[in-house]
Amino acid sequence: MTQDRSRDRIQSVERAVAVLRAFGGHDATSSVSELATRVALPRPVVRRILLTFEHIGYVRSENGRWSLTARILELGAGYFAASSLAEIAQPAMADIVARTGETCSIGELDLPDVIHVARVEERRPLPDAVRVGTRLPAHATAVGRVLLAELPEEELESYLSRPREAYTPATLVDADGLRRHLRDVRLRGFDLSIEELHPGMIAAAVPITVDGRAVAGLTVSSTTLRSNAALLEQAVVPLLADAAERIAREFRAANPGRFRA
């Protein structure tokens, strides 16, 4: 568990970051009132934060609506450097897409969600398709559960103590049932999700493990019209496992200071 350092935190910075994050997953533009509601802050506070970000070029205002500018991409540039997991994984992900004809993604755990940090698609994405930066509930996705399965026991039990939403009749939300499922996932090294987040959507995932620690999950998603659980396990999971090992080796080699000798 992360040590509590609340006395060292700067509240104004936390509020500013919350306003930036409030733009994610919503319409391209937002009003001050909409943003204030999302972050549960007074409108004058949110307005001053927006004016500050406008001054340094991260947001713009037009007709009372606020939006992010391209400059905001500077904040993520370091993550997508040549030594980043997303950059290193691209060739392996493209190979999986070419061999399966399905979409391949990488997700990182950010409880209670998993954030998609890389994605390669074989087909033109649908309007509501998952994109880089999208957050999905960890318990309802295969990629989320392969990462939950690798959590330290104390952290996992803390997560399981909180309620979870059922998105379809197949979503596993019960703490005891999820605990047993995660134990099985850890033993077999992969997971399948069959219509647990959206009807008709299925996926397989494996962890990307470096020095015994899962740094991310690698997943292939499909639909019940194109695939099924047996096909995913027999044809896709072995490809994911091989790719995850390759990505892990290259990621470790590209970041020698991050991992132990």
Rank of each mutant, 00 (worst) to 15 (best):
77 A>K: 13
79 Y>E: 11
79 Y>N: 01
80 F>Q: 05
80 F>P: 00
81 A>R: 15
82 A>K: 14
82 A>C: 03
83 S>L: 01
83 S>V: 08
84 S>H: 07
85 L>I: 14
86 A>H: 01
87 E>L: 01
87 E>R: 13
87 E>Y: 10
89 A>V: 03
90 Q>H: 10
91 P>Y: 08
91 P>C: 10
93 M>E: 01
94 A>K: 13
94 A>N: 05
95 D>Q: 13
96 I>Q: 02
96 I>H: 01
97 V>C: 04
98 A>P: 00
98 A>D: 11
99 R>L: 10
99 R>C: 06
101 G>I: 07
101 G>D: 04
101 G>R: 06
102 E>T: 01
103 T>A: 12
103 T>C: 09
104 C>E: 02
104 C>R: 00
105 S>V: 12
106 I>Y: 03
107 G>C: 09
107 G>V: 05
108 E>R: 14
108 E>T: 14
109 L>H: 01
109 L>E: 02
109 L>M: 08
110 D>L: 09
111 L>T: 08
111 L>A: 07
112 P>G: 04
112 P>S: 06
113 D>T: 09
115 I>G: 00
115 I>K: 12
116 H>Y: 15
116 H>M: 13
117 V>D: 01
117 V>K: 04
118 A>D: 05
120 V>W: 02
120 V>N: 04
121 E>G: 03
122 E>F: 11
122 E>K: 13
123 R>I: 06
125 P>F: 07
125 P>M: 10
125 P>C: 08
125 P>V: 09
126 L>A: 12
127 P>W: 06
127 P>I: 09
128 D>Y: 11
129 A>D: 14
130 V>D: 00
131 R>E: 14
131 R>F: 11
131 R>N: 10
132 V>T: 15
132 V>C: 07
133 G>L: 09
135 R>K: 15
136 L>D: 04
136 L>Q: 14
138 A>D: 02
139 H>R: 03
139 H>Y: 04
139 H>D: 05
140 A>R: 01
140 A>D: 04
140 A>I: 08
141 T>R: 12
142 A>E: 01
143 V>L: 10
143 V>Y: 01
144 G>T: 07
144 G>Q: 05
144 G>D: 08
145 R>S: 03
146 V>A: 09
147 L>Y: 01
148 L>C: 06
148 L>P: 01
150 E>T: 15
154 E>D: 14
155 E>H: 02
156 L>S: 09
156 L>W: 06
157 E>H: 13
157 E>W: 08
158 S>T: 11
158 S>W: 05
158 S>R: 13
158 S>I: 07
161 S>H: 06
162 R>S: 11
162 R>M: 11
163 P>W: 10
164 R>I: 07
165 E>W: 11
165 E>D: 13
167 Y>D: 00
167 Y>Q: 06
167 Y>W: 15
167 Y>G: 03
168 T>D: 06
169 P>R: 06
170 A>I: 02
171 T>L: 04
174 D>T: 12
174 D>G: 14
174 D>Q: 10
175 A>W: 04
175 A>L: 03
176 D>E: 15
176 D>G: 08
179 R>G: 06
180 R>K: 14
180 R>S: 14
180 R>H: 14
180 R>C: 09
181 H>D: 15
181 H>T: 09
182 L>R: 05
183 R>W: 11
